[in-house]
Design a binder for these strands. Structure first.
Lengths: 130, 130
DNA sequence: GGTTGCCTTGACGCCGGTGGCAAGGTCTAG
DNA sequence: CTAGACCTTGCCACCGGCGTCAAGGCAACC
C-alpha cells in the first residue's frame, strides 16, 4: 500500500501521514524507488491516531497508544502507559469542565447585571418622562 | 501617563498595549516627542480588556465592550452589542461543556474497557498457571 | 558629554496540526 | 515519446496573543 491509498483509506492526507512519520508515530518501509510502503497494520495505527486527535489528544499523548498497538495488542489503550495518559487526560478534561462552568457562571452574572442595568435605566427614563 | 506606567498599573506589558492599539482597542494621544500619552479612562479600558481575555474572549469579541466604555458607560457590558457577544459566548461555553462531557464519557469508557481487559488477561494467566 | 532609562517602529519566534506549492523522480497507458 | 498520475523532499503560511530583540530618538542628571 502506498501513501496515497493509506491516506484515502484512513480519511486523511498524504501530507499528514508524512508529518506523523517525522514525529515517530507512523512507520513505512521503502520500495526500491524510494516510495513509502505500508502494511495493513499501519491503517489501524493511523485510525487510532485520528480517533485520539479527534478526542483532543496531542501527538505526544498518542505515542504510547501507538506503541501499545505495535506491541501486538488489539487495542491501543490496554497498556499501562496508555492508561496513565487516559487518566491524565480525564483529569484535564474534568479541570476544563470546571473552568468552563466558572466562566459560564461569570457570563450569566454579567448578563444578569447588564439586563438589570438596562431595566433600571428604562424605569428612570419613564420616571423622568412624567 | 506614559505607556510604561499604564502597563504597570494595568498589570501587563508595553508590548501588549501597543498590540491592543494596532488592533483598535486602546487609544493614545501623542506628546510633542511622539510618546503615547494616556488618560485615566484608558486604564479602565485596559482592565476591561484583560478581564475579558482572562474569561476566554478574543480581541474581536472585546471590541464592543471597549466601545461601550468609551460611550460613557460605567460598565462595558451594558450595551446591546456587548450583551449580544455575552449571549453568544455563553452559548459557545455551553457547547464546549457539552463537548467536554462527551469526551469525558469517551475517556471513562476507554479506561473501563482497558481495565476490564487487564483483569480478563490476569484471570486467563491464572487459569493457565494451574 | 556620557550614562541611564524611558520611548519609538519593525520584525521574527512560538505552538500544533495541516494546507499548499515547488521542483523533481517514477511508473503506466496510449 | 508523451501525458498524467503517482511519488519524493523541503519550505512558507496559518491562527492569536503576545515575548523578545534590534536600532535608534529623547529626557534628565552628573
Amino acid at each position: 500500500m502506498l501513501i496515497g491509498e493509506l491516506a484515502e483509506r484512513a480519511g486523511t492526507s498524504t501530507r499528514t501521514l508524512r508529518y506523523y512519520e517525522t514525529h515517530g508515530l507512523v512507520r513505512a518501509a521503502r520500495s526500491a524507488n524510494g516510495y513509502r510502503v505500508y502494511d495493513e497494520a499501519e491503517l489501524h495505527v493511523v485510525r487510532e491516531i485520528r480517533a485520539l486527535l479527534a478526542v483532543g489528544f496531542g501527538l505526544d499523548d498518542i505515542r504510547p497508544f501507538v506503541a501499545c498497538l505495535r506491541a501486538g495488542n488489539a487495542s491501543g489503550h490496554v497498556c499501562p502507559d496508555s492508561v496513565a495518559v487516559l487518566r491524565r487526560k480525564l483529569a484535564e478534561v474534568d479541570a476544563g469542565i470546571d473552568r468552563l462552568h466558572a466562566v459560564r457562571q461569570e457570563l450569566r452574572d454579567q448578563l444578569a447585571q447588564a439586563i438589570a442595568h438596562r431595566e433600571e435605566t428604562c424605569l428612570r427614563l419613564r420616571r423622568t418622562a412624567r
